[in-house]
Lab assay of single mutants.
Amino acid sequence: WIARINAAVRAYGLNYSTFINGLKKAGIELDRKILADMAVRDPQAFEQVVNKVKEALQV
């Protein structure tokens, strides 16, 4: 799951650890299995999560 998430978030200019930190700051409580599945099956929803994380990180 970690490898999938890392590959997906790198397309948005983040790395895995920064993304996970941003999830916590944004108050998003999705587990890694769901995030990895979302990255593959629903990229639009995953992009929305990434955008919320970037807002929380102020990137």
Rank of each mutant, 00 (worst) to 15 (best):
K54R: 10
D37K: 12
G27V: 06
L14W: 04
G13L: 02
V59D: 11
K52H: 07
P43R: 12
T18Q: 11
L14H: 01
R10G: 12
K52I: 15
L30A: 07
Q58P: 07
A26I: 07
T18C: 13
N21Q: 12
L30D: 06
K24Q: 07
I34R: 11
A39G: 06
V40M: 09
L30I: 13
V59E: 10
Y16N: 01
N21K: 09
F19H: 00
L14M: 08
I2K: 09
Q58G: 10
R41C: 15
V9A: 09
V50M: 04
A36R: 02
L57S: 06
N21P: 05
A7D: 15
G13P: 00
A39I: 14
S17F: 15
A3T: 06
V49D: 00
V50Y: 02
A26S: 06
F46E: 00
L30G: 05
N21A: 14
K24E: 08
N51W: 13
D37C: 12
F46P: 00
Y16A: 11
M38H: 03
E55K: 11
K24C: 15
Q48A: 14
R32L: 15
A26E: 04
A45N: 11
D42I: 08
G22D: 01
E47A: 09
L30E: 13
A11R: 12
F46D: 00
Q58S: 10
D37A: 05
F19D: 00
A56H: 07
G22N: 03
I5L: 14
Y16C: 05
A8D: 01
G13D: 08
E47R: 11
R10H: 11
N51D: 10
A39S: 13
G27K: 10
D42F: 10
Y12S: 02
I28Q: 07
K25L: 11
N15Y: 06
I34N: 11
A45W: 12
V40G: 13
K52C: 12
Q58H: 07
K25Y: 07
N6Y: 01
A8G: 02
E55W: 07
K54C: 07
L57R: 05
L57K: 04
L30F: 11
L57E: 05
A39P: 07
A11I: 13
A26R: 04
A8R: 03
L23N: 00
R41G: 11
D42S: 11
T18A: 10
A7H: 11
S17E: 10
N21Y: 12
D37F: 11
Y12N: 02
A45L: 08
A11C: 09
G22M: 03
L14I: 07
R10V: 11
A56I: 12
D31M: 15
V9I: 06
L23R: 01
K24I: 08
I34M: 11
D42K: 11
E55M: 08
R41T: 10
L35V: 05
A7M: 10
Y16H: 03
V59P: 13
M38G: 02
K24A: 10
A36W: 14
G13M: 03
V53I: 05
K54V: 11
F46M: 04
A7T: 12
K24R: 06
A11F: 05
Y12E: 02
E29S: 12
G27T: 06
Y12L: 05
A45G: 11
Q44N: 10
T18E: 10
K33H: 06
R32D: 15
V53K: 00
A8I: 03
N6Q: 05
P43C: 07
K25N: 06
V49G: 00
I28E: 05
A3N: 07
E55P: 03
E55F: 07
I2A: 02
G22H: 03
P43H: 08
I34K: 10
N6A: 12
Q58R: 13
I2N: 01
Q44T: 06
P43Q: 07
Y12G: 02
W1D: 15
S17G: 07
N6R: 08
K25M: 11
I34C: 15
Y16G: 10
T18L: 07
F46S: 00
V49F: 05
G22K: 01
A11H: 08
L35R: 01
A36K: 03
K54T: 07
I34D: 06
Q58N: 09
V59Y: 09
G13I: 01
R4L: 15
K52M: 14
D31F: 14
W1P: 15
D37E: 10
A8S: 04
K52A: 05
L30R: 08
D37N: 12
Q44M: 14
L14V: 03
Q58V: 12
G13V: 01
E29M: 12
G27Y: 05
G13S: 04
W1E: 15
W1N: 15
W1H: 15
V53R: 01
V49C: 07
Y16P: 04
D31V: 15
Y12M: 03
V40A: 13
I5C: 02
L14T: 01
D42Q: 10
D42W: 09
K54A: 04
V59Q: 15
M38D: 02
K24D: 06
R32C: 15
I34S: 09
L30Q: 13
Q58F: 07
Q48I: 13
